[in-house]
């Protein structure tokens, strides 16, 4: 079994229900996110539209975070999930530097690395990840990539525009997008300008450690 995720961006309406469900389920501290929805505004007024892209750990088959972790705190489990053992993590931030998707953060409460685990604890009890359950439009499709009859495999078979983020990195992500454009998946395809955020002057909790 190799579990994977697919987000149909045609369906996603940016409600952030998945974000909140994840926060609650995993008790993710303030100012950190295992899953977040990125908004990108496209076009020039009045011809504008807003795109929504849920971003989470890609659970790569060839995960750079697993490779660089010096103590195997990040490790694969049999179903393909890249899991994390917070008790073992030494907080070197090697995984933060290695992940091309910016999906790993240092938990300000435990001072250890953390990230989306596809709700491994729920899956162990035969439940779906919290974000899948919370999505009101069924945009999150989750299942076994090795089973050709699973929802996710059939979705991939039925759609021509299935993409992953940064395929050139050779990480073989187990996280797919349907209906995505460069604007959704490539961080260099959009500008980040001061004053254009929906919420400006966002404050974050002190992270600890020694950052600039």
């Amino acid at each position: 079994m190799q579990l994977g995720f697919l987000v149909d961006l045609h369906l996603c309406m940016g409600c952030k229900g998945c974000e909140i469900a994840c926060k609650v389920e995993n008790e993710v501290p303030l100012s950190t996110w295992r899953l977040r929805v990125k908004y990108v505004d496209v076009g020039t007024f009045p011809e504008t539209k807003r795109t929504f892209t849920p971003l989470r750990c890609n659970h790569c088959e060839n995960a750079p975070c697993e490779r660089i972790c010096p103590v195997s705190a990040l490790h694969y489990i049999e179903n393909g999930i890249v899991n994390i053992d917070k008790e073992r993590c030494i907080g070197c931030a090697g995984c933060v530097m290695a992940c091309p998707y910016g999906a790993i953060y240092i938990d300000p409460e435990t001072q250890t690395a953390d990230k989306c685990t596809y709700c491994a604890h729920r899956i162990a009890s035969s439940m779906m990840p919290a974000c899948v359950v919370a999505c009101p439009v069924g945009a999150n499709i989750f299942g076994d990539l090795e089973d050709p009859k699973s929802n996710i495999s059939m979705y991939i078979q039925d759609h021509r525009d299935v993409q992953v983020r940064k395929p050139e990195k050779g990480t073989n992500p187990h996280h797919f997008y349907v209906g995505a454009s460069q604007v959704n998946l490539n961080p260099l395809a959009s500008r980040r300008e001061e004053g254009y955020n929906l919420f400006n002057k966002i404050t974050t909790l002190p992270l600890g450690g020694h950052h600039e």
Binding site: W33, R36, V37, V40, D41, Y105, V183, A189, S190, T204
Partner: peptide, 13 residues
């Protein structure tokens, strides 16, 4: 596209 990120909370730099 004139694409501008209007909501994202990336990692501290």
């Amino acid at each position: 596209t004139n694409a501008v990120v209007t909501l994202d909370v990336p990692l501290p730099d």
